[in-house]
Design a protein around this nucleic acid. Structure first.
Length: 471
DNA sequence: TTTTGAGTTGTTCGA
DNA sequence: GTCGAACAACTCAAA
């Protein structure tokens, strides 16, 4: 019986432009694709876990068209892979790297364990444009500032080339698979699932089509339209990038082509892709960014750390009485995403006006975002809070009302998400009330609340605290 | 080693 | 309404 190769599916939910899968195909051995529900899958936040299930269903269908079934298994990865090797007599295991601890350390151990058994174990790039260790400054170990990182990467060729797959060789052996539907990955979502579902862009094909559409219609206006939250002016591909339903290299190449075709704004799109890289670069070199203050002196800052604080709850519910903040928080709840400008504003509001620890915000995002990415989420929150690697002047406090004036002058975004303003005119605004838990006891005809903080007072208090900090 | 220049995303005030 | 200055001072990258 011919020995098969095991392809371990990680964050590369695609067929094309997938170096690990390509390697497997090139061995000409039969391929057994496996997805393992390990402790790291179980520990995902509600929305990312739910989105993972959708992504897996879609991917399984795609594999079916090539005549392959994904094998679903639960357990620690070393144990599952070992059993699968024994069962199938496979002699190779390949997967795409995910770079961040603790997964990275786990993978290193598995690699040496498999090699000890005489199995070829190989990991591949594919999740990023560049390996985090392959970009470094001349005078230190790694970059702590974005702009020099960008200057270094902009003229660097990303890893790998375009890969198109036409066939995949399946295996005659059919190892026992669990049923994905029985895993209940979507259970944490409860009432909101059917509503968020309407806003999901699912799978490799849809992601590619979106990229084409974005490059054909939007990238040329990107520098200005990406800042307007009422417009569909961004690529919106973060959701697909997070599961690897599209390759970042494909996005990069499309951006480069647009730039070469004379659309200068495409460079800003490339810069955004590089922000994602920068987040991984930082997390790879300083893993503490994921769950501790990157600048450790911030440990003594007097954040509010009470998760059950009344104002924190109102922030989560989009009931702070500050329209831009509430609109963005409701957009998050209904769509599982939030416009980038909204992310900055709600983060600034939580960490500065409400003086609340960024970890509380990070955790909420981790539960609500279908495009959740551990590296980007942590970098963004720490940047907003001021504890991160960017030298953010402490006096930089977003005023949500000034922001509304600048980026939503006609109140389009506000009315899109706040039924208290738009009445029955906005389907989106109303759907928020169907998505939320009943126990929140919120109704669309309720009166819009008074602001929970006086914005200028909140700003002053935050500035005071930042000024008086003990470091 | 030392020096120099630069650093995602802002707000407010007063001329 | 528009525009420039002030808001401080520090870390990082490169020469």
């Amino acid at each position: 019986m011919e020995k098969p190769i095991i392809y371990w599916i990680r964050r590369d939910f695609r067929i094309d432009n997938n170096p690990a899968l390509k390697f497997a195909i090139d061995t000409e051995q039969p391929i057994i694709p496996v997805f393992i529900r390990d402790e790291f899958v179980d520990s995902l936040g509600s929305a990312p876990k739910w989105r993972l299930e959708l992504g897996l269903e879609c991917l399984a269908q795609k594999y079916k068209t090539y005549g392959l079934d994904i094998i679903f298994k639960t357990g620690s990865a070393d144990k599952v892979l070992t059993e699968l090797i024994n069962e199938t007599n496979a002699d190779k295991v390949v997967w795409g790297r995910t770079y961040l601890p603790p997964l990275n350390d786990r993978d290193t151990k598995i690699k040496s364990l498999l090699k000890q058994k005489g199995i070829m174990a190989k990991s591949f790039p594919g999740h990023l444009l560049f390996e985090p260790w392959s970009v470094s400054p001349k005078s230190s170990d790694f970059f702590k500032v974005y702009t020099p990182f960008w200057k270094t990467t902009r003229h660097k060729d990303p890893l790998g080339s375009i890969i198109k797959v036409t066939q995949i060789r399946s295996s005659n052996q059919q190892p026992k698979s669990e049923n994905l539907k029985n895993w209940g990955l979507g259970e944490g979502m409860s009432t909101g699932a059917s509503i968020v579902h309407q806003h999901v862009r699912l799978g490799e094909k849809a992601a590619k089509e979106r990229l084409d559409w974005f490059i054909a219609n939007k990238v040329m206006h990107y520098s200005s339209s990406r800042d307007i939250p009422s417009l569909d002016g961004t690529s919106g591909l973060s959701e697909n990038l997070s599961l690897g339903e599209i390759s970042p290299i494909e996005c990069w190449n499309a951006g480069v082509q647009a730039l070469e075709a004379g659309h200068d704004d495409a460079e800003i799109f490339l810069k955004e892709l590089v922000w994602r890289e920068f987040a991984y670069h930082l997390a790879y070199h300083t893993p503490r960014i994921l769950d501790q203050n990157w600048r450790q002196e911030w440990d003594s800052f007097p954040w509010n750390t009470n998760e059950n604080d009344e104002k924190v709850l109102l922030w989560k519910q989009g009931r702070t009485g500050v329209p831009f903040v509430d609109a963005a928080m409701r957009e998050l709840y209904v769509t599982g995403r939030m416009h980038n400008r909204g992310r900055m504003i709600v983060a600034s509001f939580l960490t500065k006006h409400l003086m609340t620890h960024w970890k509380i915000g990070l955790k909420w995002f981790e539960n609500c975002l279908i495009d959740w990415d551990p590296a980007s989420n942590a970098m963004g929150w720490q940047w907003s809070a001021g504890s991160g690697p960017d030298a953010t002047p402490y006096f930089r406090v977003f005023n949500p009302n000034t922001q509304l004036e600048k980026f939503d002058k006609e109140n389009i975004y506000r009315n899109m998400w706040l039924a208290e303003f738009s009445g029955k005119n906005s389907k989106n605004a109303l759907s928020f009330f169907d998505a939320i838990p009943k126990k929140w006891k919120l109704k669309p005809d309720m009166e819009y609340p008074e602001s929970i903080v006086d914005l200028s007072e909140g700003r002053t208090l935050a500035l005071e605290a930042y000024k008086n900090r003990q470091f």
